[in-house]
Simulated assay, not measured.
Amino acid sequence: MIPVPVPSGPRDATVTARAAGPAPAHLVPLARRAYARDVVAVARDLLGAYVSVQADDGTVVLRLTEVEAYAGGDDPASHAYRGRTDRNRSMFGEPGHLYVYRHLGLHHCVNVVCGDRGEPAAVLLRAGEVVEGAALARERRARVGTVDSDRQIARGPGRLAVALGLTLQDDGRDVTDAAGDVVLGVEKGLHRAPVSHGPRVGVAGEGADADRFPWRFWVTDDRTVSPFRPAYRRPRPD
């Protein structure tokens, strides 16, 4: 069954996210049960959470400011809409693991698997604010493109993946393990901030229906949130 959409009405202040702040001194990983829920609810709750990635060249931590929910077989925009493939197999596994794929052969996109095992759903991590390891994140981004400000370091799913140093090699990683190299968690004593919602970026067809799928969520007025763009449509020949 398709998860219940966000109620209609104003796009801000319907739910809240953790407000901006420095990286927590001790990151508390979200338990697996936090992901074994409705994907839309998980997406909202992940805003303001932290993603920490440790690699040989250092550690980068960012605060999530924008995400999108994809509901598997019930969602025409989901990679799992037509069933299991080699590419999307991680979506059918245990919740709390990464699903990483390469988009159009150009850049990587990082998702977190949600719901029950065998019922694929995932939250796309679209954008974030780097709160630790900014110099390293900027260096990684500069190797593959231009970085004109700290705001742009992880503003968009491809940039986020590069800033964190995540690739296809990280597909299937468990983010609930405190001792792991990739951890998704929260800080104690949460502060809340307004959240907005709307249609997903670059989605075409049925999945672009903003009334049925207003499943892009972002921290209201946060400077690191990526701009909305509809799906590209080729002009019809004359």
Rank of each mutant, 00 (worst) to 15 (best):
L166F: 12
A134D: 09
F92N: 12
G133N: 10
D170L: 15
D174R: 01
P95Y: 06
R102E: 02
A134G: 07
V131D: 12
E66Y: 08
G158P: 00
G180Q: 09
L166D: 10
Q152D: 14
L98Y: 00
A122P: 10
A154W: 04
T85C: 10
L124R: 13
D116C: 05
L160A: 03
T146S: 13
V110T: 12
G156W: 01
R151D: 06
G93C: 04
G115V: 07
G128K: 05
V112D: 09
A77P: 06
T167R: 14
V112M: 03
P76V: 15
G145N: 10
R82W: 02
M91T: 14
E66Q: 06
R102F: 11
G83T: 03
V110A: 04
E139H: 10
S90L: 08
G145D: 07
D148A: 14
S149Q: 10
H103I: 09
R159V: 11
R173K: 08
G83C: 09
V130W: 03
A163C: 03
V144D: 11
L106D: 02
A121G: 15
D86T: 15
G72L: 01
G72S: 13
R151Q: 09
A163G: 04
A122K: 14
L168Q: 06
L98A: 08
P157C: 01
N111V: 03
V110I: 12
G165S: 15
T167L: 13
R140F: 10
D75N: 00
Q152T: 14
R140I: 10
C109L: 07
R87Q: 00
V175C: 00
E66D: 05
H108V: 00
G158I: 06
L166Y: 12
C109D: 02
L106S: 01
V112P: 02
A142R: 14
D116F: 09
C109R: 06
L98M: 03
P76M: 13
G115N: 06
A122G: 08
G156F: 02
A163W: 10
L164N: 12
E94Q: 12
D150Y: 05
E94G: 07
G165R: 15
V100E: 06
D86G: 15
H108D: 08
G96T: 12
V110P: 05
A142Q: 13
N111E: 02
E129S: 04
D177P: 01
T167W: 14
R159L: 14
H107K: 03
G172F: 13
A69G: 13
S78Q: 09
L64H: 02
V131A: 11
R87Y: 09
M91G: 08
H97D: 03
G115L: 10
I153D: 05
A134F: 04
H79Y: 11
R159I: 14
G172K: 12
T167E: 15
Y70P: 08
G72A: 03
D74M: 00
A69C: 15
A179N: 08
D174K: 07
I153K: 02
H107Q: 04
A71L: 03
R151W: 01
P76W: 15
A142W: 06
S78K: 11
G73M: 00
D74N: 02
A121V: 02
H97Q: 11
